[in-house]
């Protein structure tokens, strides 16, 4: 039996890990979204409305919220994934702001004061979700699809030239990523007890990115490391008191100079060789069914 504090820390860690793993899937294709908090809020609001207003169980609501977030993710991905890194960043950011503005003026969901009355997130439920995602990622990274993610991340033009359906693959990755983020949002809402649109602003999006960039994009467990470190940092470094924020900022400055590839990862970005690409291309018609 865990005491309330341990349980709160474990749940918070779990949600951070789920968010990081979800984000890793799109980061693995080299597509950085600056508005993942939007999928979190879509998930959180969907699930909260279902549990609070319709008395659905958290488990079912959570799955529905994942689905809703996936649809939104596919839509945004379809619009934006052809763009360059910076433009993708800006359009996803703008999307998150638009979602926030719409939620702010949605009276049914409480407007700016949000919803309350959600509870029920348990460490067990989170463990199951994380377990499912890790098994998925384990097989994904060992599959042809995982290889194609890497190909797109390392050199999108080369991957396209080899005939990979870059847009379709990235949109799919983006939708799966949004779905996991949506589920994490649903679980987070049922732990925080209260949700307001303001909780899902730019700082939350940024935190999700930091999990993955700090951990390193190369392996998915790097994202887990990043999530754990960033969640525990405020607890470990609490003694810094009002100098915490300054230390936190400087930590990033130092890290980007010393280990721009993140904590985990070899740092030679261009490990992906043309030979590996060639291995992917001949059978692509059969394997991926597009071209």
């Amino acid at each position: 039996m865990m005491d309330a504090y341990t349980e709160a820390v474990v749940i918070r860690l779990g949600i951070a890990i789920l968010l990081a793993l979800g984000y890793w899937i799109t980061a693995a294709t080299g597509k950085f979204s600056f508005g993942h908090a939007a999928f979190m809020s879509i998930g959180a609001y969907t699930a909260s409305i279902l549990t609070v207003k319709f008395d659905w169980s958290l488990e079912t609501s959570m799955l529905v919220s994942g689905l809703t977030a996936a649809v939104a993710g596919a839509f945004i991905g379809w619009i934006a994934l052809r763009l360059t890194i910076l433009y993708l960043a800006i359009i996803t950011f703008a999307f998150a702001e638009i979602v926030k503005i719409l939620l702010d003026s949605w009276d049914y969901a409480g407007g700016a004061s949000g919803l309350f009355g959600m509870r029920g997130t348990t460490p067990q439920l989170l463990a199951i979700c994380i377990g499912v995602v890790i098994v998925y990622l384990f097989f994904l990274t060992r599959s042809r699809k995982g290889l194609s993610y890497e190909a797109i991340r390392e050199d999108e033009q080369a991957a396209r030239a080899c005939g990979l359906g870059v847009t379709r693959i990235s949109v799919e990755a983006f939708a799966v990523s949004a779905a996991i983020t949506g589920v994490a949002g649903a679980l987070s809402a049922h732990e925080t007890l209260i949700i307001t649109p303001a909780q899902f602003g730019a700082p939350q999006s940024l935190l999700i990115i930091l999990f993955v960039v700090l951990g390193g994009v190369q392996y998915f467990w790097g994202a887990i490391v990043g999530a754990v470190v960033l969640t525990m940092l405020p607890i470990w470094f609490d003694f810094l008191e009002e100098y915490y924020q300054i230390t936190y900022g400087l930590l990033f400055v130092a890290l980007m100079i010393l280990r721009p590839q993140g904590i985990v990862g070899s740092g030679t970005e261009r490990r992906f060789t043309m030979r590996a690409l060639a291995r992917l291309s001949p059978k692509r018609g059969k394997a991926d069914g597009d071209g």
């Binding site: 990115i209 300054i246 900022g249 990033f252 980007m256």
Partner: peptide, 12 residues
């Protein structure tokens, strides 16, 4: 990320 970090430090 690094310049965002600098921004955080400045505000704080």
């Amino acid at each position: 990320l690094s310049s965002l970090g600098v921004g955080l430090v400045i505000t704080s």
